[in-house]
């Protein structure tokens, strides 16, 4: 209800003129996705290193050892730069970490993501994370504790940058014209208006006044309650609705049947109102 709660839904109009109402990915999901990617990168790098060391110890051929060093250097470079590029250029526009978190990269203006978007987005990662990380790891030639501390502060600023803007943009996102949105794959859950199929409608007849007790918000809460099928909750909700609309339960009336019937009837009533241009938000909304 209160205005304090931020709205994460963004208008996103397709060329067909329909608003897709994309949702900005929460910071926690972004962070988790990055951690996952970092773990994958470190894991692969460790595996590559162990492989190269074992292979080098095994062979005595000078050229083979040098080839391994080349392999290791190129592997490091590819991991650091190509990993994000290649995955984000794929049709799903997401690294494995982002896929696991069900988020993806999209262009803010609704156009197709181009290679240059992705490149600009990931080139900035260099100063956001890798540059200061290098300061932390490398400890020779004048790179001292003060510089390492500065690097840490620097990374901290950039890591938290998304928290200080409305669209949770990383510096790279800002520059590349991209944002990261939620891309869930949802199953189609069954319709909860099953009453017309299983209960003879004559047994449950609600007057308009009884149906006007609630609005869309309550209807959707009821949909959740019915979907969960938790006996205690069902009983409680059924009792409260009966009391509110003054319903006298018949003999052996099941709470489930009553709520199913009331849900279907309420939905029909509210949908009819929508057809004439009235969307009744909640029970306090005037009929």
């Amino acid at each position: 209800m209160s205005a304090a709660e931020p709205n994460w839904t963004r208008q996103f109009i397709t060329p067909e003129g329909v608003d897709l109402r994309l949702e900005i990915a929460p910071f926690a999901q972004r962070a988790a996705a990055f951690l996952l990617d970092a773990l994958i990168l470190i894991g692969v790098l460790l595996a590559l290193t162990v492989f190269c060391i074992l292979a080098a110890v095994g062979g005595h051929n000078q050229i083979a050892v040098q080839a391994l060093v080349v392999l290791w250097l190129l592997g490091l470079f590819l991991l650091r730069n190509a990993y994000f590029l290649v995955f984000e250029m794929s049709p799903r526009a997401a690294t494995p970490g982002k896929r696991a978190m069900k988020i993806r990269v999209a262009a803010r203006d609704g156009a197709a993501l181009t290679a240059t978007n992705i490149f600009a987005r990931n080139a900035m990662r260099e100063i956001e994370i890798f540059l200061p990380a290098t300061f932390l790891i490398v400890h020779h030639q004048g790179v001292d504790a003060v510089l390492a501390l500065l690097g840490l502060t620097w990374t901290g600023v950039f890591l938290l940058f998304p928290l200080f803007n409305r669209d949770r943009l990383r510096l790279g996102d800002l520059l590349a014209g991209t944002w990261v949105v939620r891309a869930p794959t949802r199953r189609l859950l069954p319709d909860m208006a099953i009453a017309p199929l299983k209960v003879p409608s004559a047994r449950f007849y609600f007057t308009d006044a009884q149906l006007d007790a609630y609005g869309v918000k309550e209807l959707q809460v009821l949909e959740d309650v019915l979907r969960r099928r938790h006996i205690e909750t069902i009983r409680g909700v059924a009792e409260r609705i009966r009391a509110k609309i003054g319903w006298a339960p018949g003999a052996n009336e099941s709470d489930f049947d009553f709520l199913d019937a009331y849900y279907a009837a309420l939905r029909q009533r509210l949908e009819q109102l929508m057809l004439v241009g009235r969307r009744r938000k909640d029970k306090n909304d005037r009929v």
């Binding site: 869930p184 979907r227 949908e271």
Partner: peptide, 13 residues
Amino acid sequence: TSLDRALLDYLEA
């Protein structure tokens, strides 16, 4: 026209 939230969520995704 519809207030079936499961349907709306599904279609949006």
